[in-house]
Design a protein around this nucleic acid. Sequence first.
DNA 1: GCCTTAACTGAAAAGGTTTTTCAATACGAG
DNA 2: CTCGTATTGAAAAACCTTTTCAGTTAAGGC
Lengths: 144, 144
Amino acid sequence: MSERFDTLAQHFRENGHKLTQPRQAILHALLVAPKPLSPAEIQEQGQVFYADLGLVTVYRTLELMEEMGVVRTVHLADGCHGYALATPGHTHHVVCERCHAVVEIFGCELGEFLQSVAERTGYQITGHWLEIAGICANCQQMEK
Amino acid sequence: MSERFDTLAQHFRENGHKLTQPRQAILHALLVAPKPLSPAEIQEQGQVFYADLGLVTVYRTLELMEEMGVVRTVHLADGCHGYALATPGHTHHVVCERCHAVVEIFGCELGEFLQSVAERTGYQITGHWLEIAGICANCQQMEK
DNA sequence: GCCTTAACTGAAAAGGTTTTTCAATACGAG
DNA sequence: CTCGTATTGAAAAACCTTTTCAGTTAAGGC
Ligand SMILES: [Mn+2]
Ligand SMILES: [Mn+2]
Ligand SMILES: [Zn+2]
Ligand SMILES: [Zn+2]
């Protein structure tokens, strides 16, 4: 079990949740995933670790993880959402339009911009949500 | 008919699409909407102008309008998408967490940031998508 | 103004995704 | 180990979106 896994397990216990086999399978699936996964994909990958994993449990566990802040919703253009493990701190994603590879961007240079938005609109800004689309180096190669 | 409506009507004709009553109703609904509407809301509001407006037609018309670039998809946190008329140029939205009032932000100060993202990741950036959450002035009042 | 025809429509059905319900089960505290 | 409760998967319900299809409507040519 990776250190990362233990940290996540900790979160579950600290919040008074059981660390069941289905939940462990979901964690493992997310840990090895190279990109955000849809609930259906999480079930599929999770069944490698726990064969009977049900889709309903995936939804319920993601909801729980979202409450605990250990998973991040990535809003995909086609309406259904992918999920990736949250990394400490605030990050954004760049998603490849072709192969859906995802790179996480650490740090967020939006502070000043958001400040000016607050002034212009009178809104108290509570959060933001940026996703960047592009074409990854690999896919750029292939297009030639 | 507003000037804005005529411009939109123009778009339809220029792209070789008919300007039917259902489509006019959808345009009117979006024109008077104070916030992005879901397809179901567009149907509901549109029926004020054309009683038989079908939901399927709403979906089809939105797809058409997206192709023409006259409507903008607003990705709402709960998975289903709202639509607002596109204003010329690139804009972002600030959405009130309480009442869902929306303010459009003109101009985009992300250029430099995106440039650095391209350099750091090797991705060719093709688009981005920023949504800001906050609490509008009204709702800030009410909370006291 | 009519005709003609392809674009367009709504209803119904199909296809997906997400949520709710419920009886059975597994976790983990004691 | 025992027990009570949180959790589970299956099934059904509830949604949302797309496809199919037969009938209708808009728009251009007369
Ligand atoms: Mn979305
Ligand atoms: Mn921008
Ligand atoms: Zn790629
Ligand atoms: Zn508000």
